[in-house]
Amino acid sequence: MSAAKNISQVDEGLKSELQKSGIFVTTLEGLYNWGRRSSIWPLQFGLACCAIEMIATACARYDIDRFGAGLFRPSPRQADLMIVSGTVTKKMTPQVVRLYNQMPEPKYVITMGACSISGGPFKDGYNVLKGIDRYIPVDVHLPGCPPRPEALLHGLMKLQEKIDSQQIEKMEWYQKGLKREFPVPEFGPNGLNPPYNPDVFQPQQHREITVG
């Protein structure tokens, strides 16, 4: 999707005239999106090894604070971004979905690392969920095992571009009377129940490949 910049509908010549007198012109949407993308507060939610790289990103060498995202909140009620870093197991999935439901809109999800995208190296395990995008919608996928801190910053910049291109009238979370809640899966005798959420995820259809 193309990233929209803070464009205003005003003529360029008039803009530069006004700037000389100290008046800056922009659209309401541009200002609103600029405020939102420059202060994304992540939820402190590290599951496994990728969490250590996330903490390293927040430390002195790779400093995520210069992007405005340095304030990790412990409570989901105060966070806008959930960085799912690490393997999501079937035992942990109901808690992840519950946490996602508790975050207020607008909210975003970055899946960091191969394990939360699709199960990763542990894909054949009996307790491993093959990707958290079976239950909640994901905005940015970030491959790597673990992704370097620079890769996490790149993912954050991509998310910022996505936020820039969102428009207030068309976004569903800004409509009246919206109540969006994703169903929480339950523990079954040999797996989770339901195995995936049909509104969010469709499994790949396996095709038989014949030769000749």
């Binding site: 599951l47 090894c49 197991t89 035992k91 942990m92 542990f122 054949d124 395990g125």
Partner: peptide
């Protein structure tokens, strides 16, 4: 506990060789 049970022991029994479980011990 058990929220990060990633089935390391069962995976090692099905890997192709002993060396294939070496990257899993890193984790």
């Amino acid at each position: 506990m058990g929220y990060l049970h990633r089935n390391h022991e069962k995976l090692a029994e099905n890997m192709t060789s002993y060396l294939a479980s070496m990257p899993y011990t890193d984790r």
